[in-house]
Nucleic acid binder design. Sequence first.
DNA 1: TAAGAGAGAATGAACGTTCGCTCTCGGCTC
DNA 2: GAGCCGAGAGCGAACGTTCATTCTCTCTTA
Lengths: 209, 209
Amino acid sequence: MPPANAQRQSDRQSEILLAAQHCFARMGFHQTSMQQICAEAGMSPGNLYRYFPSKEAIIAGIAERDRAEVAEQFASADLSLGFFNVIEGLAQHHFVERSDEEVGICFEITAESRRNPEIARIHQAFDADVRARLLAMMRQAAERGEIVRDVDFEAVTTMLMVIADGIWSRRAADPTFDPKLLIPTLMDVTRHLLPAPRKGESQDKEGSR
Amino acid sequence: MPPANAQRQSDRQSEILLAAQHCFARMGFHQTSMQQICAEAGMSPGNLYRYFPSKEAIIAGIAERDRAEVAEQFASADLSLGFFNVIEGLAQHHFVERSDEEVGICFEITAESRRNPEIARIHQAFDADVRARLLAMMRQAAERGEIVRDVDFEAVTTMLMVIADGIWSRRAADPTFDPKLLIPTLMDVTRHLLPAPRKGESQDKEGSR
DNA sequence: TAAGAGAGAATGAACGTTCGCTCTCGGCTC
DNA sequence: GAGCCGAGAGCGAACGTTCATTCTCTCTTA
């Protein structure tokens, strides 16, 4: 197995995934035909099937690739900038800067995960990963004294993830929605849910009602 | 045109919508075949097409019916119970008590609205309606002195609707999610975004950062 | 020249929709 | 009341299309 060939194989696969993403984001998985993906990728069906065994495998490939991407970005977050700055940076990046196409494809993956067990597996693994990283970030911030300790971090994490889902969903379905305008409110809510400890106190305040 | 026939026609249509809803919530619009809807409705294709001219018309019928239902429930909310009680009641009803199937079908409608202009029209009209009602409720509550006046009600409404989207989306795609546990956090956030005026003051406080 | 890369017509299943038929009944004629 | 009629309700096979996938053939290149 020559490495040059493996590289070429992988490049072609990436090209196909990109072409498929364009189509899927526009029309959804089940309204995109293989012919359309072939046209977008500039490739015949016969050849495309040399790189992916089925349409489902392409969908799974996209889901897996996105999952890896987001996990990587999350992992590279630098907590020394301060917890709230990191959160705001992540929000800015994932809610505002991501293209409509990226948002669309994520939405489609979520929809598909409702009925395709393979996609559901990938989607839920991704979700659990994000949740764990968020929770860990909060606990570290509490250790550093940035936020109070006695908050129900699980509940706050759930709320933040729900808001993230909501922003995603609304970006996908509401053309009038501008996520930029929501960031201040989001940060206000986050700071309310995760209050800073009062100075010079050993913490004992209630965090959520 | 005898009214008995019109009634019968309308009943059959409702039956078909119900059967279709079961199928769609399970498999999504484009993975449900007309044959499956026929089987669920206990009816032949030929007969079903006497009540709906196309598959798309069934989808639109479901969207329209749900929109009417929710609008009605919203309209019957009794503000004299107090703003936060009404909000909590609506949250309880729409986020906790609604069945998985209802949640699933709403999610599918949202997904379909991304590519089907007719569904998009219905979905966006529904959305604008809910938003307007929520906004009106807040303004009334401010008039009554339940919450401060000088808050960016538009921004708060957007945030509440985003959270609603998120809860919906998560219920649809995350089997481990329990919306009941999130209601306290939701109400905490709502009360934070819409603070009560301080007693005996004519209000002049900043509402969102 | 052999093997991988690519093309595109062919295949067979599945789909949304249509069509021609039967059955059921309420009203009409005798 | 018996027999007939027409229209609406319902059936299910059939149609034409589209789709994912496969097959066979041709290029390219090392």
